[in-house]
Design a protein around this nucleic acid. Sequence first.
DNA 1: CGCGTCATTGATGTGCATCAAGTGGTGTGG
DNA 2: CCACACCACTTGATGCACATCAATGACGCG
Lengths: 211, 211
Amino acid sequence: MDEVVTVRRKLMRYETLFHTGDDFTGLYAIRSGFFKTSTCLENGREQVTGFQMPGEILGLDGIFDAHHTCNAVALQDAEVCSLSLDRIAEFFPLVTGLQHHVHKIMSREIVREQDVMLMLGSMRSEERVTAFLLNLVRRLHAHGFSRTEVILQMTREEIGSYLGMKIETVSRIFTRLMEQGMVAVNQRHIHILDPVALRQSVGQFEGLRAR
Amino acid sequence: MDEVVTVRRKLMRYETLFHTGDDFTGLYAIRSGFFKTSTCLENGREQVTGFQMPGEILGLDGIFDAHHTCNAVALQDAEVCSLSLDRIAEFFPLVTGLQHHVHKIMSREIVREQDVMLMLGSMRSEERVTAFLLNLVRRLHAHGFSRTEVILQMTREEIGSYLGMKIETVSRIFTRLMEQGMVAVNQRHIHILDPVALRQSVGQFEGLRAR
DNA sequence: CGCGTCATTGATGTGCATCAAGTGGTGTGG
DNA sequence: CCACACCACTTGATGCACATCAATGACGCG
């Protein structure tokens, strides 16, 4: 895989990796740091479309018409590797299965977004927040972090924008979960106290495929 | 492209093309007929994740872990072509750009789902229905159908499931749009009377990228 | 016709948004 | 070191959009 890495790039907190409308030049593998993607609505407000962490891929949206359709912003100081699709294609005859790997990454993205659609379409707000938290700790744990402690890299506003609810509602739900003893919340520091109860509170969706 | 078509298959109305959990064998290009994709929630209810029409591709969700994660059901008698990804890969050295074409299709799917997420996360229900209608006629028009007349292939229930609202709300919004003179609704026959007003009623989202 | 499915319409309830005020942590300048 | 401002966040009061519950209507089919 190192063969297709063209450039490394460091970003400072709040620096933008690419903007909506930028020419697509290739994908980005996150080596360190935490990102958000968002799109700008007409009225100037932004809607967060996803959060990405080390080990994940950014930029798949730009392949379609060679332009990006969202903004990608680092929420922490971060480092990424540029991957050129051309290089991947070039190496394909040699590295059988690499092409297939790209398909898998894209398919996973499609499936994941279907899960978010499901969540937005049919969960109540408390279920969305718990699903969000559980998804976050699972992905972090997959990369070696704690499965009970999270330090959120995003504001309540960004969480709300992603989950389709207002900042006040996010806040109220955090306090409610705290009152029920499921989590301990202190600023952006979240301690998962009762993962079983959390999963139950996601309700009929606890069966959502883990990824 | 004909080279990668392995099999044609005819389906009757309400017949299932693939189920959740089925082994992934390849993609399907819709030649005729109208499909829905859905996933089953724990309690047995279903959530519709998309509608597909001739010229579109089904099955991208199955690439990730070689199993499908949703059901695809024909809403009309339909015909599809099976496309084997292996065959595509096999032909890749010969047909340069075909691989890239697959990437584009997958990227478009990712971008489209981001739009649905946006819609579910930040539109009110009247905006969702109008956005849904406009999206439908645009896609149909792209395939040679009228841009003012639609015959819905799905029930109100399925529309509601897709848009994240209840059947009664869907119904009320259709009558409201009719009262405002934007559309004429007769059962599943929809006549777009005032596309300009419809687009305005989508509000700040009229700028959503057309695809 | 009588039944089943799908859709419409009305009455009522509730979850979340909205509006508004207050808290606490952090940084800055006097 | 404190006063002040600023920001992210919390908390409370009120309103509205949509869900829920219930009844009725329209169409197709045996």
